[in-house]
Amino acid sequence: DVEPGKFYKGVVTRIEKYGAFINLNEQVRGLLRPRDMISLRLENLNVGDEIIVQAIDVRPEKREIDFKYIP
């Protein structure tokens, strides 16, 4: 289970104008929005990159997770 405030290693699987989709595993995916990136820009991410993200909002009923990147 993903818990708000905890850090997780994930893989960038898709990049859109509104953010990057990060997979923690095959069943768990969330969104990293540009506003939640500190010292990292969306255009510097590539599909396949491994990054450490912090879960900031977890909505299991909608199967949605918002992430934050903190270097």
Rank of each mutant, 00 (worst) to 15 (best):
D1R: 15
M37R: 01
I70A: 11
I70H: 10
L31T: 04
L45M: 09
R41E: 12
L40P: 02
P71R: 08
L32H: 01
L31G: 01
A55Q: 02
I65N: 02
R63P: 08
D57I: 11
L31E: 02
K17E: 13
E3S: 12
N25E: 07
Q27S: 14
R35H: 11
D66G: 07
S39K: 13
R41P: 07
E64H: 11
R59G: 05
R33T: 03
P60K: 11
D66R: 13
A20N: 00
E3R: 11
L42N: 03
E43W: 10
P71D: 10
N23E: 12
E16N: 09
Q27N: 14
S39T: 11
F7K: 06
K9C: 12
V2W: 06
S39P: 15
L42E: 02
I22V: 12
V53P: 00
I38S: 12
I51R: 00
F21H: 08
I56T: 10
I70M: 12
I38T: 12
I22Q: 01
L24T: 03
G30V: 04
P34K: 13
K62C: 08
V58L: 06
F67E: 02
E64M: 12
G30R: 01
I65A: 06
L45G: 00
L31K: 03
Y18V: 07
R41Y: 11
L32E: 01
D49M: 13
I70C: 08
Q54E: 07
N23Y: 11
L42D: 01
Y69A: 05
K6D: 05
D57A: 15
F21T: 08
E61H: 13
A20R: 00
K17F: 13
R59C: 04
R33G: 03
T13N: 05
A20D: 00
R59L: 05
Y69I: 04
N25S: 14
I22R: 00
L40C: 09
Q54M: 15
D49A: 08
V58Q: 05
R29P: 02
I38Y: 12
R29M: 12
Q54H: 05
K68T: 08
F7G: 03
F21L: 10
E3P: 04
E61F: 06
E43M: 09
E26P: 15
K68R: 15
D57T: 13
E43I: 10
E26T: 14
V12M: 01
Q27C: 11
V2D: 03
V53N: 00
Q27L: 14
E26C: 10
K6H: 12
G30N: 01
G19C: 03
E50R: 15
V12Y: 02
V53M: 15
P60V: 13
L40T: 08
L45P: 01
K62Q: 12
Y18M: 05
E43H: 11
G5Y: 09
P4D: 06
I38G: 15
R35E: 11
D1C: 11
G10I: 03
R59E: 04
L32M: 07
F67G: 02
L40S: 09
P4H: 08
G5C: 08
